[in-house]
């Protein structure tokens, strides 16, 4: 096991740190074209941060003794299994999707994850800009 502690908190899910591997990200749900993933990219996409005590999110830490392989890369399969994240391969397209952690509740912590989304004209908006105000965040759709 390679111990590593990431000092930074992921600031946004707007951009992963390894764009060549992470095709898309969706809080829990990530689209990958390779299972070679750094701990930083995984943390940016999922909020689960690699620490000596395990994979941690908020106050929750899950020990994953085999989180890293011999080269220090994140063992996505082992971490996914331990955190209850479904890893589904699309063999035809050569991509994998990694679902959110499961086995508990939809929320692991009450801290709002970093959320950056565009407005209708494509201008990015970071929800952190609303700090200091109460926010009623409403999901709707045209359908």
């Amino acid at each position: 096991m390679v111990d590593r502690t990431l000092d930074h908190q992921p600031q946004t899910i707007g951009r992963p740190t390894s764009p060549e591997t992470l095709l898309a990200w969706n809080s829990g749900t990530m689209l990958l074209d390779s299972l070679d993933l750094t701990a930083d990219a995984f943390a940016d996409a999922t909020g689960w941060i690699a620490k000596p005590e395990g994979m941690c999110k908020g106050d929750v830490c899950v020990p994953v003794p085999t989180a890293f392989d011999a080269d220090g890369m994140l063992d996505v399969t082992a971490v996914a299994e331990r955190l209850g994240m479904a890893l589904v391969a699309d063999d035809e397209a050569g991509v994998w999707a990694l679902g959110p952690d499961s086995g508990g509740r939809a929320l692991t912590t009450a801290t709002v994850p970093p959320i950056e989304l565009p407005d209708i004209d494509g201008n990015p908006f970071n929800l952190a800009a609303m700090h200091g105000r109460k926010v009623l965040l409403v999901a709707w759709a045209s359908w």
């Binding site: 989304l117 209708i120 929800l127 609303m130 105000r133 109460k134 926010v135 009623l136 965040l137 409403v138 999901a139 709707w140 759709a141 045209s142």
Partner: peptide, 8 residues
């Protein structure tokens, strides 16, 4: 309080 709407 601010409303923030998100279209899915």
């Amino acid at each position: 309080l601010s409303v923030v709407t998100v279209a899915l």
